[in-house]
């Protein structure tokens, strides 16, 4: 008996080893890819940021090493800081607009409406539309003079009558003071993404909370303030973090709104975000070393904002599970 128990134990141990080997084998696919396509490039990125590599001149390992010159250059480049301000303007602006629109919408959708699935499908449709084509549509809608927005504004006497030859309508496409604002407004068209997360968050709130509070005589507003909003904070947090990281790296929308030329920054650089700027420096000016250094500057900004978010969440994000 003892022998067979021992052998059973041994076979179980070998079975466990085999299972572990299979497991490692399967997951190694991702780790091999990570090593080649993420870890190695990351290391290269650090190296390139200390060189004056230009892809025209040859491979990056032949480029001259220049120490901290690239970092010095971009930190003293006022166009870079201008792009940082644009980046902050665009990302906070678009995340704010999208979230302010989608929370009330999600709450309305969360009521027992007829045809909820249809509405949800329609609301999400713009979010999967290609950025290039959707921005092209909005360029047309915002066309000064004969565009839809221009026409509506003049109809409501918010600007001069566009049918008059003397009228010079608001130039949504070229006025550097408003172009970024328009792109932020356009971003709200893709609200469906954020909306779905809020909808899932709302559906995760136990109905019993509402039942109990109505028994205590709470009205809808009190229920919203004391139940819905606190329990929705994890969803708000998620949407803000993910939204900001995405918005910091928005490219297509801004480039296309600027008229499709990657080499400028829109009218008077009004749409030039840092991500776009480092694209220009890298691919149009062929100064890859400088662009790599700039990328680390942007990375630092993203990390600071994300860490601030995570640090701040302790103060306002409320997790249902912790209190059970």
């Amino acid at each position: 008996m003892a022998v067979s128990a021992k052998s059973a134990k041994r076979s179980r141990a070998s079975e466990r080893r085999k299972e572990a080997l299979w497991g490692y084998g399967f997951i190694s696919i991702w780790f091999i890819g990570f090593a080649i396509f993420t870890a190695v490039p990351l290391a290269m990125s650090v190296y390139i940021s200390f060189t004056s590599w230009s892809p025209i001149a040859g491979p990056f390992w032949e480029a001259k090493r220049v120490g901290f010159a690239n970092y010095n250059t971009f930190l003293h480049d006022h166009r870079y800081w201008h792009s940082i301000i644009n980046t902050i303007y665009f990302s906070f602006g678009s995340v704010l607009v999208v979230n302010l629109v989608s929370i009330p919408l999600a709450m309305i959708l969360n009521q027992r409406l007829r045809g909820i699935n249809l509405y949800r499908t329609i609301f999400y449709l713009p979010a999967i539309m290609p950025a290039v084509a959707s921005v092209l549509i909005f360029r047309l809608i915002f066309l000064p003079g004969t565009g839809l927005v221009s026409w509506i504004l003049s109809r409501f006497h918010l600007q001069c009558d566009v049918t008059q030859i003397t009228c010079s309508p608001i130039d949504f496409l070229n006025d550097p003071k408003i172009t970024m604002l328009v792109v932020i407004i356009i971003s709200a068209w893709g609200v469906g993404q954020t909306l779905l997360i809020y909808l899932a968050g709302l559906q995760g709130i136990e109905a019993s909370y509402y039942e109990a509070s109505s028994l205590d005589g709470a009205n809808s507003w009190q229920q919203f303030r004391k139940i819905t909003l606190p329990l929705l904070t994890p969803a708000i947090f998620f949407n803000v973090v993910v939204g900001l990281i995405g918005a910091f790296q928005e490219f297509a929308k801004l480039v296309i709104y600027a008229g499709g030329s990657q080499a400028t920054g829109g009218p008077a650089d009004s749409l030039l975000t840092t991500f776009w700027y480092l694209y220009i420096v890298g691919f149009d000016f062929s100064r890859m070393g400088l662009a790599s250094a700039m990328a680390f500057g942007l990375f630092a900004l993203i990390m600071i904002v994300t860490l601030l978010n995570f640090w701040g969440q302790k103060k306002w994000v409320f997790y249902q599970e912790e209190r059970r």
Binding site: P41, I48, P55, G282
Partner: peptide, 10 residues
Amino acid sequence: AIMMIPSYAL
């Protein structure tokens, strides 16, 4: 943002 240029180099 930090992957774009080194990926290109790779």
